[in-house]
């Protein structure tokens, strides 16, 4: 899990992602966050260090958002993440702090 830094704060656990969230590392990312879900009230995923993201990374993001709509927050989107979200027209979906009731579907 070389590219996931974990830091515990007062409100919960904070993950800082480094480098690529791609098909090669999405697996680590998923496992790290998944393991923390039962034990922490609030989770924050800081994406400022993400330099590269592909569909594999995006899928994990989407799933985390679906599973923990209220307790998990993505913060500090890096340009690489933003670009992917913009391409997939998912910026709005992720930037919306209140989860959409009907699920992960998103229109731009």
């Amino acid at each position: 899990m070389r590219n996931v830094n974990i830091e515990d704060t007062q409100s919960g656990r904070r993950f800082r992602m480094e480098g690529g969230m791609t098909v090669y590392s999405a697996f680590h990312f998923r496992d790290a966050v998944l393991a923390a879900i039962p034990d922490y009230g609030h989770l924050e995923v800081d994406l400022s260090g993400v330099q590269e993201m592909d569909v594999a990374g995006l899928q994990v993001m989407l799933q985390l958002k679906t599973k923990c709509p209220t307790t998990l927050r993505f913060t500090n989107y890096s340009p690489a993440v933003r670009e992917v979200l913009r391409y997939c027209k998912l910026l709005k979906y992720f930037s919306d702090p209140v989860p959409v009731e009907e699920g992960p579907r998103a229109f731009s």
Binding site: R30, A56, L62, Q63, R105
Partner: peptide, 20 residues
């Protein structure tokens, strides 16, 4: 416009990160 369809993405635990 683009609609990204996430319906087929399985639950977090079943997710194979290397699958699309």
């Amino acid at each position: 416009h683009i609609v990204t369809l996430v319906d087929a993405v399985p639950g977090l635990t079943d997710l194979e990160p290397e699958d699309s």
